[in-house]
Simulated scan of single mutants.
Amino acid sequence: MQPSPLAAPDASWYDIPGVRLVGAIAGALFLVAAIRAMFGRK
């Protein structure tokens, strides 16, 4: 089985520009959701 020609063998997930941005946005959303769950509903 040959590797895909589109796959870079030495590429890390952190080298892809959008991955860190999406991770930061998702982390912020989870943090806000956790804070609202703790303090938001009475």
Rank of each mutant, 00 (worst) to 15 (best):
M1K: 08
A8R: 13
W13H: 05
S12D: 11
R20S: 15
A24P: 00
P17K: 04
P17R: 06
Y14I: 09
F39Q: 12
A11T: 04
A26S: 10
A8T: 09
P9Y: 03
R20Q: 15
A37G: 04
I35N: 01
A26F: 07
V22Q: 12
L29H: 02
D15K: 00
M38A: 13
R20P: 10
V22T: 13
A28T: 07
G27A: 09
L6G: 12
L29E: 02
A24K: 03
P5S: 07
Q2K: 13
I35L: 09
R36C: 04
A34N: 00
A28F: 11
S12R: 10
A37F: 07
R41D: 09
A33H: 02
K42I: 07
G40S: 05
F39Y: 13
V19K: 12
I35D: 00
D15F: 01
L29Y: 05
L31G: 09
G18W: 15
P17Q: 07
L6Y: 15
R20D: 14
A7Y: 10
A26K: 02
R36I: 04
R41I: 05
D10M: 03
F39K: 10
V32S: 02
V32P: 00
I35Y: 05
I16E: 11
L29P: 00
I16D: 08
L21V: 13
A33E: 03
P17D: 07
A7F: 10
S4Y: 04
Q2L: 15
A33N: 04
V32L: 09
D10P: 00
A34G: 03
R41M: 07
S12N: 08
G18M: 12
A33Y: 06
A34K: 02
V22I: 15
K42F: 11
A8I: 10
A11I: 05
R20V: 14
A28S: 11
F39M: 09
V22R: 12
G27M: 02
W13P: 13
G18P: 07
M38G: 11
S12V: 06
F30L: 12
A24S: 08
P9F: 03
Q2P: 15
G40F: 05
L6R: 14
K42Y: 08
A26M: 06
F30T: 03
V22K: 10
R41H: 10
L31T: 08
Q2H: 14
A37N: 04
A37L: 05
D10H: 06
F30N: 03
I35A: 07
L31V: 09
P17V: 02
G23S: 05
R41C: 06
G18A: 13
A28Y: 08
G23K: 01
A11R: 06
Q2M: 13
V19I: 15
A8E: 12
D15L: 01
P3K: 04
S4R: 03
F30M: 06
L31W: 07
A26N: 05
P9G: 01
L6E: 15
I25L: 06
K42T: 11
W13L: 10
P3Y: 06
R36Q: 04
L21G: 10
I16Y: 13
K42H: 11
R20E: 14
P17G: 09
I35T: 08
D10F: 08
G27Y: 00
A37Y: 06
G18V: 13
G18S: 14
F30C: 10
I35F: 08
Y14Q: 13
M1T: 08
F39T: 11
V19T: 15
L21W: 14
